[in-house]
Simulated assay, not measured.
Amino acid sequence: MTFPPLREELRGLEPYGAPQLDVPVQLNVNENPYGPSPACVADIATAVAHAATTLNRYPDREFVELRGALASYLSRDTPHGIAPEQVWAANGSNEVMLQLLQAFGGPGRSAMSFAPTYSMYPEYARDSVTEWVQGRREDDFSIDLDAAAALVREKRPAVVLLPSPNNPTGTALPPEAVGALCEAAGEGLVVVDEAYGEFRRTGVPSALELLPTYRNLVVTRTMSKAFAAAGLRLGYLAADPAICDAIRVVRLPYHLSAVTQATALAALRHAPELLGKVDELRAERDDTVAWLRAQGHQVADSDANFALFGTFPDRHAVWQGLLDRGVLIREVGPEGWLRVSIGTADEMKTFKQALTEVTEEKS
């Protein structure tokens, strides 16, 4: 056996990670460019200081207060309301997804999504020893509902992962697609990943509205994006209480620290402020999409805080040309496409100028 005794299917693989480079304009990981206010920072500091007085004790492993606060926040997006026992949280929606596959995937079971989609999904499947099944999206990145439902009925996955808005394309799913796939999945779970849900365009509903109808539906969210709290690492889901109870079997003991819980609760107290820039970012996104199209680029319709655009014969050269001008975007998605996160008005102005220079140089 070769040292270290790594699982054979993991040998030679590179860990996930976007480039972390110190450049003036960072538009590559879909962060919210607007940080918390001094008042929010002060509240977080006070809450953490209080939590620090009890760090000799384990935190509330059921994070009851936080589940209640998250339920209240989510209830704003559905007329049916969300109860605390329907909520689960972990260290980022990444850990939420991994826990779902640890609980409901595993050897002899499969997970499914439709490419192009979030590149971590097959890694969650790999890490939980779950077979990965991948369908395809249409050329406009929508999902052919009949074909998708047929594939789900054929493969019978234990978990179907449906980001809405999709990453890296920004495409949102209509409610009828979610419902049809929940029905096709039978007893399997359908996980609608709404990491960018707060950025969806007016009139695009949240899958939270469908929870009372489909017991196998799970809706995930994060505080990393709209809440401007990527450094907090807090993701969560809403689902049938039986699903939340099942996840408790696989979670690590005391997986949410007292500091994490205190910080998240303080951030939720400032939700109106932290979400206050969402409308501004939506408008900047729409302006960016319109500008890119006016320059002759293809751009996917986006309900997220980013735009996927292309296509380029050598996208890496375009990416590098932008980086040389101090603008970092993401080389991700289908061949020939690039993704830009939506930043401040000044950052987007710099991006547009840099892209104009690079494309003129390459033409």
Rank of each mutant, 00 (worst) to 15 (best):
R7S: 03
V340S: 14
H270V: 04
H50Q: 14
P59V: 05
A147P: 01
P33T: 00
A230E: 04
D193Q: 12
R126N: 06
V249W: 01
V218Y: 07
Y121V: 14
G276Q: 07
R285N: 07
Q86K: 07
Q134D: 06
L145I: 14
P212D: 09
C40G: 08
Q295W: 02
R282D: 00
S363A: 14
G12Y: 02
R201L: 14
S37G: 07
S72T: 15
V358M: 05
A184L: 02
A52T: 00
L161H: 12
Q353Y: 07
A103P: 05
A45G: 14
T263E: 14
A125R: 01
F3N: 03
S93Q: 13
P157H: 10
Y121M: 12
K352L: 03
A69P: 02
E357L: 15
G203Q: 06
A115T: 12
K362W: 10
V299P: 08
L6S: 11
I243Q: 01
G310Y: 03
A271D: 02
A52K: 01
Y254E: 06
G296P: 09
F312G: 08
P168V: 10
V41K: 15
K225V: 10
A238W: 05
T53G: 05
A148W: 05
L151R: 11
F306W: 12
V96H: 05
F351S: 11
A267R: 15
A90N: 09
D245E: 15
V178G: 08
